[in-house]
């Protein structure tokens, strides 16, 4: 399972780096096209928005892999070790519920509903863009299952060590 996690981490990281670099290029192109060559781009805003959405969801899955989303753990830290472990498993179960209901099922419903709806500037459909949600949902579920096993085995602490994660 560790091997699978590492493979997913590396692949996701690579995808995020590429999407982010692409995002910079698209928006810089938008400025260049309008201000330097006076031929305003008609597709760049839409392309940038959807690249951003995909980047946001994928990078978000990667943060679940690291248990890095902001959480408030000062209450749980005061509890006995065994209770902490029970809560840690419960937390991952709730993450799975969110991923499966909100991202996988809801994402598929949203994709289906907008399957025929064309984007205005790009040659694809909004439904296709929505597919990032179920894909992310599956990834987050895999990561959460990994953390459940790791916490039960004692390979991971029940309360993740504090890091500098902040919502800005």
């Amino acid at each position: 399972m560790l091997a699978l996690k590492k493979f997913l981490d590396r692949s996701l990281a690579a995808v995020c780096v590429v999407l982010f670099a692409l995002l910079v290029v698209i928006v810089v192109w938008q400025v260049f096209a309008r201000q330097v060559i006076s031929d305003p781009s008609t597709w760049s805003e839409e392309a940038a928005r959807y690249t951003f959405v995909w980047l946001g969801f994928f990078a978000s899955a990667l943060v679940f892999s690291e248990r890095g989303h902001i959480a408030v753990d000062f209450v749980v830290r005061k509890l006995p070790g065994l209770v902490q472990r029970v809560i840690a498993v419960l937390v991952q179960a709730l993450i799975i519920a969110f991923a499966l209901i909100g991202l996988v099922w809801g994402g598929l419903r949203a994709a289906q509903g907008a399957w025929d709806t064309n984007l205005t500037a790009l040659p694809t459909q909004i439904g296709v863009m929505y597919l990032v949600m179920p894909i992310t949902g599956v990834l987050i579920t895999v990561y959460a299952l990994y953390h459940v096993v790791a916490v039960l085995r004692g390979a991971e602490l029940a309360v993740a060590p504090t890091d500098d994660a902040e919502a800005i």
Binding site: C16, F20, L55, F58, S60, V63, G68, I70
Partner: peptide, 18 residues
């Protein structure tokens, strides 16, 4: 640069999900 893009991507993702 890839490491920095990834760093920034993580911080962004935390905000985006919120």
């Amino acid at each position: 640069l890839p490491r920095m893009l990834l760093d920034a991507g993580r911080t962004t993702a935390i905000v985006m999900l919120l």
